[in-house]
Amino acid sequence: MSGSFSENLIYGLLRAITYAIVLLVGYILFDIVIKGLPVLNWEFVSGYPHQSGASGGILPAIAGTFYLVLGTISVALPLGVGSAIYLSEYAFQGKFTTIIRMAIITLAGVPSIVYGLFGLGLFVLFFRFGASILSGSLTLACMVLPTIIVASEEALRAVPKGYREASLALGATKWETIRTNVLPYSLSGMITGSILGVGRAAGETAPILLTVAAFFLPKLPNSIFDQVMALPYHLYILATQHPDAEKVRPMQYGTALVLLLLVLGLSLGAIFIRAHYRKKYKW
């Protein structure tokens, strides 16, 4: 009897903890949607900001974050997938590879402000890219690389050994085998993992703080060497640095909502891509 009691207690407790987390996330989302929705209109997403962001739209920040996401993906995806292929398919599985893997995992745990300072030192100052989309994208790419590498390696490992053997036994070279009978089947996992990683990076403030983000720049960038505004940084400015923080509260919520929708869009994209490839290559 007491056994069944403690069983029920643990069950109830664990369930309560889970519900509490869902409730918390739900509250945050609810709060942002309710308070952000009133300001969300065409003018808000397509207009330029006025009075340091106290009125007008947030188009430059949306565009800035969009470019940063694009830049981050185009730098981090090839690098991450490439090193994942090397690590899982080519590298001799010895001590050295283990050390590399450990380094990658450690890299994933480095605080984002450290990436920001690293990007400031290397890309902004040393390479003289200045505070620019290029510097910001490279910095964010460094930050999401570990996620992409780990996700890609997992996706590669999930491909059955039989496909590789069959392909090699037919006289395909190693690269032909990887290109035609490993990558296509692991692509969905790679892209899904990568996009989720980049979605996380899209909301980061610290790495872009020192490498790209402009406080107030009501225009669209002309090149990758331009500074831009970005949604998370804009939100941070409005919430903490703006002289009239109370008055711009609705703008903050609107910005947060747009950022959420953008990340949600990325995640939906990842799900769509995964479903598409799963259907194409299922085993």
Binding site: G162, Y163, E165, A166, L168, A169, L170, G171, K282
Partner: peptide, 20 residues
């Protein structure tokens, strides 16, 4: 090795057709 494996084909224990 590529030429060799072209000349010497192999069928495996567990059938492993590609998911194509």
């Amino acid at each position: 090795v590529v030429k060799l494996r072209r000349k010497v084909g192999m069928v495996f224990q567990k059938s492993n057709p590609f998911p194509k």
